[in-house]
Design a protein around this nucleic acid. Structure first.
Lengths: 223, 223
DNA sequence: ATATTGAAAATTGGATCCAATATATTTAAT
DNA sequence: ATTAAATATATTGGATCCAATTTTCAATAT
């Protein structure tokens, strides 16, 4: 099992460190769906006892990234194609509304930052960076909505599907398509056209859903 | 501190029992916003050690019902009026979409059950039952959508605002209004009119939002 | 009287140990 | 040889103990 501590800025408890490390490993697909997460092993990696590990695991279970069975332990929670599809539908609904709320309030600095992430996303060749940059790009366009609850829910939804999306982007040529769509959304925001930004965001996510579902149906080992 | 074990069916670990008991106490408003949740005290109530208590608290923090400060402990997480308002807006968006997805698939048994909860809600005088029955009524109308992710997010949103809503319903006459609206939604579902059900649900929740925000602005001690 | 310092108490975070359960391995019976 | 029972090992759930930090409150100085 490959695990690395993630820098989370402020002084953090051991359980926070373990939580973030496991979260990143799961959303990045470094831990396969169904893989058991042994308390002893993880505690060994971080030189702690099992107590903070258990706390981290129970938090991850609450987030839907891990499932646990009594006396059997914790496992990376894989999700079905139907669930992946549902989460994308949910995202298209919520994110299109959030961007519509953000556009009238969006600040020039925010747009400038979004453009930086757009460019970085379009130029990087490292699949590991795609998820991060894609998130940062979209987040910038949502940020000025100040809808913190919506944003936290969107983040959780992204956590659950990031790894599948990356697998698809790596094996197909979805990145150029995503890029073109990102540019369209960015321009709509720059023009202040909230309705258009919402429409393009909805289509962007629903298109990604359909591509990903097709990809998973062809490539996934049926359970 | 008043706490009671909640029956959660299957054999559960101590941490599950503590989690559900605290969750219910918080969403029912039996524990006030900001109230400290001392590990020792809770452990004493349930005759366990602090370990399962800490696990429960960290899960509740992930759900947004509790906030913790390092070496200071856990506290019931109150939310601002803006956040309450945001959560209602979120609900109106998501729940109207879920009911629109459910109506074409809704089964007669489901409608019958919904009508039972509608009647119970309209006749009970116990404010403690309102939240439960209101949830059960709406859940019935969403159930056949099979959108499990959406439903789990809706549940979390309800967990966060239930206590404020109950306070308002208790001190104003919001129940008859809610009842009338419930009947309208129910009839739209029975007619199979998904668009109307969605519209009425959206208006039902946005109306509740505006009433609750006004109530909180008048009654809440400003922080 | 008020503010400041410092020790005592309370509280949390984490480590270690024990009990309960599940899994793997060995042994015995046919 | 195959299957069933018994035993050993691994793993989790929980209790108890210790360390780190905060809070409380009394003693002291101004």
């Amino acid at each position: 099992m490959k695990l690395e501590a993630v820098d989370i800025g402020k002084m953090a408890s051991a359980s926070d460190i373990v939580f973030e490390a496991l979260r990143h490993a799961i959303i990045n697909g470094e831990l396969a769906d169904g893989e058991p997460l042994r308390q002893d092993e993880i505690a060994g990696i971080f030189n702690t006892s099992r107590i903070p590990v258990r706390e981290a695991l129970s938090r991850l279970e609450q987030q839907g990234l891990v499932r646990t069975e009594r006396y059997k332990g914790a496992f990376v929670a894989g999700i079905s194609i139907d669930e992946v599809s549902e989460i994308f539908s949910f995202r298209s609904l919520v994110e299109s509304n959030v961007i519509a709320a953000a556009v009238p309030k969006i600040r020039p600095e925010t747009l400038a930052e979004a453009r930086i992430y757009y460019t970085e996303f379009s130029t990087t060749k490292d699949p590991m960076e795609w998820g991060k940059l894609n998130r940062k790009f979209h987040y910038m366009l949502y940020r000025d909505s100040d809808l913190t609850f919506h944003l936290s829910i969107i983040n959780n939804a992204l956590d659950r599907i990031d790894r599948y999306l990356r697998a698809q982007l790596t094996m197909t040529d979805g990145v150029p398509k995503a890029n073109k769509e990102h540019l369209g959304i960015l321009r709509a925001c720059e023009k202040g056209d909230a309705e258009l930004a919402a429409k393009l965001t909805r289509e962007h996510i629903l298109g990604a859903r359909d591509n990903l579902v097709e990809f998973l149906e062809n490539h996934r080992i049926k359970p």
